[in-house]
Design a protein around this nucleic acid. Structure first.
Length: 204
DNA sequence: TTCCCGAGAT
DNA sequence: ATCTCCGGAA
């Protein structure tokens, strides 16, 4: 698995995810980016910052309509506005102690929140809490499929976590590289140029 | 038209 | 397994 990482890093270079000033901003971005280009998420984040709303206390006490207008460019803005408030209340309720809790409990908490599925929960754990959880997204699934591997979310996650050192920075960069590779190669059907197939066969 | 750093309800 | 939420860029 580390060979694939090294190969991706050589081809694409360091991705340096996740651009954010605070853990809270990571969580907000994680909700906004669902089924949405990061480019549009950045606009929404800037809109929220311009109104000084990128804080749990502020956002939790802002009405739906105001938030909807600021994040409209991310699509699904009505449900997302509601979910941002719920996430804000969660941060507000637990304070900075959120990320001091065991990963298992944090993950269960996050999954209870509306709009937070496994991928979003793990993104927050990895990029906001800085804990080693490997994020599985659609591109990860697609690439593993090409290597002859399929399975549930947790099964695919185990494949990575069992074969890699528990290195937060490695997990962060690896997931980012997979997404970027997916955009550049998988999405554009550049399968004949894919460098992962031969590597993949030798290590599974 | 497709697709995006998906999740929830049915 | 399929549908809905939804705007914006290519």
């Amino acid at each position: 698995m580390i060979r694939i990482y090294n190969t991706l890093l050589t081809i694409l270079g360091n991705q340096n995810w996740w651009p954010a000033d605070t853990p809270f901003e990571v969580a907000i971005g994680a909700l906004l980016t669902q089924q949405t280009r990061w480019n549009n998420v950045e606009k929404a984040i800037l809109n929220l910052k311009d109104k000084s709303l990128m804080e749990p206390e502020k956002l939790a006490n802002t009405d739906n309509e105001t938030i909807e207008e600021l994040i409209r460019c991310t699509g699904f803005y009505r449900q997302k506005a509601h979910r941002l408030i719920i996430m804000s209340e969660y941060f507000l309720l637990h304070g900075d102690a959120i990320f001091d809790r065991p990963v298992k409990e944090l993950r269960e908490d996050l999954l209870e929140l509306k709009g937070v599925g496994e991928e979003t929960a793990d993104s927050i754990i990895l990029y906001a809490a800085n804990k080693p959880k490997f994020v599985i997204d659609a591109y990860t699934r697609k690439i593993l499929n090409c290597l002859g591997i399929s399975g549930s979310y947790s099964e695919l996650q185990q494949i990575f976590e069992a074969r890699l050192d528990e290195d937060v920075e490695l997990f962060k960069e690896y997931h980012a590289l997979i997404v970027e590779y997916g955009k550049q190669y998988c999405l554009k059907h550049r399968c004949e140029e894919c460098v992962l197939i031969d590597i993949g066969k030798t290590l599974i």
